[in-house]
Design a protein around this nucleic acid. Structure first.
Lengths: 153, 153
DNA sequence: GTTGAAAATGCTAGCCG
DNA sequence: CGGCTAGCATTTTCAAC
């Protein structure tokens, strides 16, 4: 991994601005944080090169795109299943939005978004069909309490 | 909720483009999807008005910003704790990045990012201090297998 | 870090099919 | 729904301080 970047309060302000609106102009950010347009651009470029900023993206309301069902599925797997193989196994399942491995009871937590319960079930079946997945536990997301920032890891 | 938007294949392409790079120009998206700059802008404006696009944001690598620890904490709560009160209780805890209520064993799942284990512990203590939180289970995130899109709900 | 300037690119609105 | 054009804003890269 590249070395960490020392980022100051101004960088935090810029990142905050861009979190709130990723398409904001450097000029307008500069007004807010007290820098010139050129200075803001230099900092953003530097944060990109340093890997702090990994990209920009659009926020999409999946419900309005016809995928109203969100679920978190815990995967309990055999020890033999490596991270790379698991990643490849998850790849083809279109409903998967995110997946992480964790310590504790479950081994992996998969987040998925589906158009209806049939597709949710099909996706969960696909998860169960992965070799060395012993057990799944599906939790439907009922409501979103906090969504503070889009983070990439 | 506003009525759903009928979105076609072109909209999907545009959303895909913007997912990959939220700052991409309408002209460059237009080249990809076979539309003029203005036509792309009109579609993006429409997707925004329809609530499909809820915003744009920057993707930040928290590790490089000095917050290398990510955890998912399951909250088991009493029935008396309403969504609004829970939301207010979570608000002041800076480490919280996301929180959802779910069906199943746990009632709420909180995702947080911390600078070190001390701060993680402090954040978990703060969660335990919320009235009617009976029990917490903390799972440290080990690796990210899939991060397909940043979604807002 | 700043400013200012110039060229390229991007955005937006109006008009038309 | 689309394309086009014209005017304006922004980005980007300079040089100079």
């Amino acid at each position: 991994m590249a070395p960490d970047l020392r980022s100051d309060k101004t960088d935090d302000l810029i990142l905050g601005s861009l979190s709130a609106d990723g398409r904001r102009s450097f000029a307008s950010i500069g007004l807010e944080v007290g820098l010139s347009t050129a200075a803001v651009k230099r900092r953003v470029d530097r944060l990109r090169r340093a890997g702090v900023i990994t990209g920009f993206t659009v926020l999409i309301d999946q419900k309005r795109l016809g995928r109203p069902i969100e679920a978190l599925v815990e995967l309990h797997t055999d020890g033999v299943l490596g991270v790379d193989r698991l990643r490849r196994a998850l790849g083809p399942i279109a409903e998967i939005v995110e997946a992480v491995t964790v310590t504790g009871d479950a081994d992996t937590i998969v987040r998925l978004v589906a158009a209806d319960t049939d597709r949710l079930e099909a996706a969960v079946q696909a998860l169960r069909a992965i070799p060395s997945v012993r057990k799944t536990e599906t939790n439907i997301v009922l409501s979103h309490l906090v969504t503070r920032s889009a983070t990439a890891f």
